[in-house]
């Protein structure tokens, strides 16, 4: 059980690293937004996983809020890219 969660955490951490590398490399701003988007989705799962690890349902709220607001954060930049703000 514990070992399993450790492995999962490791995989998620690897996913975060890969997206961060895309953020560092990404030639244009849009590529970096893609990295941000992927990172925020990954972080939603990570937060839920932490909530599970700490045995506290209330931590899920953070993940819930992130699911909504991460989207808006990305949308704002996307709207800026298309000249909408």
């Amino acid at each position: 059980m514990d070992l399993f969660l450790e492995i999962i955490l490791g995989v998620v951490a690897l996913a975060l690293i890969l997206s961060f590398v895309r953020f560092v490399k990404g030639p244009t701003a849009a590529d970096r937004v893609v990295a941000l988007d992927t990172m925020s989705v990954t972080v939603i799962s990570l937060l839920a996983l932490f909530a599970f690890m700490f045995h506290r349902i209330i931590y899920i709220d953070v993940s819930l809020v992130y699911a909504v607001l991460g989207f808006i954060g990305v949308l704002i930049i996307a709207r800026y890219l298309e000249g909408g703000i």
Binding site: I72, L75, I76, R79, I85
Partner: peptide
């Protein structure tokens, strides 16, 4: 803040 963000969503779209 969350509610304001909701309005923000409408404002930007």
């Amino acid at each position: 803040v969350i509610i304001a963000t909701g309005y923000l969503l409408l404002l930007v779209t």
